[in-house]
């Protein structure tokens, strides 16, 4: 047990500077490792894809794909199928990346820290998601419709709509980062405050809880992504739907015979 008065080391990462740009080496290594694991288990499942005799790995992937399909179709209609690959990739990647922390790879500086515990990864994911949401909104509404929806329902709400859009990636990134980073702090606290011979027990309990946290965080991030897409594609106050439905198609025909 260390001196309680000493400041707690909240975790640092090794850095490298290339051409004036700083990189978190540990995070990059862990992210690449997570990516390789995800691709490897994906290709392993894909190796024997069969419609009549699926393997266990295929069924596990299918359950994720099926859940993503069901959720996107309920939220976005048939047009939601386009974001199924993004939803699946986000869920599996975040899950694997967060679970990397449960692999004992050193303390306090891990060889494989959870890359989702680094703000750079969560911010990258959030920016990608929000960028895709806006791109999809422009594609479905058209540029004019996309810009007009910032003035609805009332034009004086425009600053708040802009603020809302700016806050979305920040909250998305910080939510995932905060939850995973809190897990890292918990592990540090267990090692700092509990005698070493007693530490394995609460550590094991926390690791088990971390698995649950990883699943929940991956699910939450994916769910919020789908919801942001839904918000971007839902009908605006003028009645023009982002994704054409039979009702709105009929309405348009009536208005412009």
């Amino acid at each position: 047990m260390t001196n309680p008065a000493a400041p707690l080391d909240l975790g640092t990462t090794h850095t490298a500077t290339v051409a004036g740009f700083t990189f978190h080496v540990d995070t990059i290594v862990a992210t690449v490792a997570a990516g390789i694991i995800v691709i490897a288990i994906g290709l392993y499942a894909r190796r024997r894809v069969s419609s009549d005799r699926p393997t266990r790995a295929q069924l596990a992937w299918e359950s994720v794909v099926s859940a993503a399909e069901g959720h996107t179709e309920r939220s976005l209609g048939p047009g939601g199928r386009r974001i199924v690959p993004l939803a699946v990739a986000l869920f599996v990647f975040i899950l694997v990346a967060t679970l990397l922390e449960t692999i004992p790879s050193g303390h306090p500086h891990k060889s494989l820290p959870a890359p989702t515990g680094d703000l750079n990864l969560t911010a990258a994911l959030a920016l990608l998601v929000i960028g895709s949401v806006h791109a999809m909104a422009i594609r479905v509404r058209g540029l004019r419709g996309y810009l007009r929806h910032y003035l609805e329902p009332k034009p004086w709400l425009f600053p708040f709509r802009i603020l809302e859009e700016l806050v979305k990636p920040i909250t998305l990134a910080l939510r995932l980062f905060g939850n995973v980073f809190a897990g890292t702090i918990m592990v540090l606290l267990i090692f700092e405050l509990i005698p070493p011979f007693l530490a394995p027990l609460p550590l094991a309990a926390w690791r088990l809880f971390s698995v649950f946290v990883a699943v929940m965080q991956a699910f939450t991030f994916t769910l919020l992504t789908v919801l942001y897409f839904q918000t971007a594609m839902e009908p605006d106050a003028a009645g023009s739907a982002a994704h054409p439905t039979p009702l709105t198609e009929g309405t348009r025909r009536t208005e412009n015979p």
Partner: peptide, 24 residues
């Protein structure tokens, strides 16, 4: 550096995830 520092790592992370997304 701390895990809360935003820097060029973000771009690398973005590229890695885009590759994973494309392959998946």
């Amino acid at each position: 550096a701390t895990f809360m520092t935003l820097n060029a790592t973000l771009v690398v992370e973005l590229v890695v995830f885009v590759i994973v997304l494309a392959v998946l």
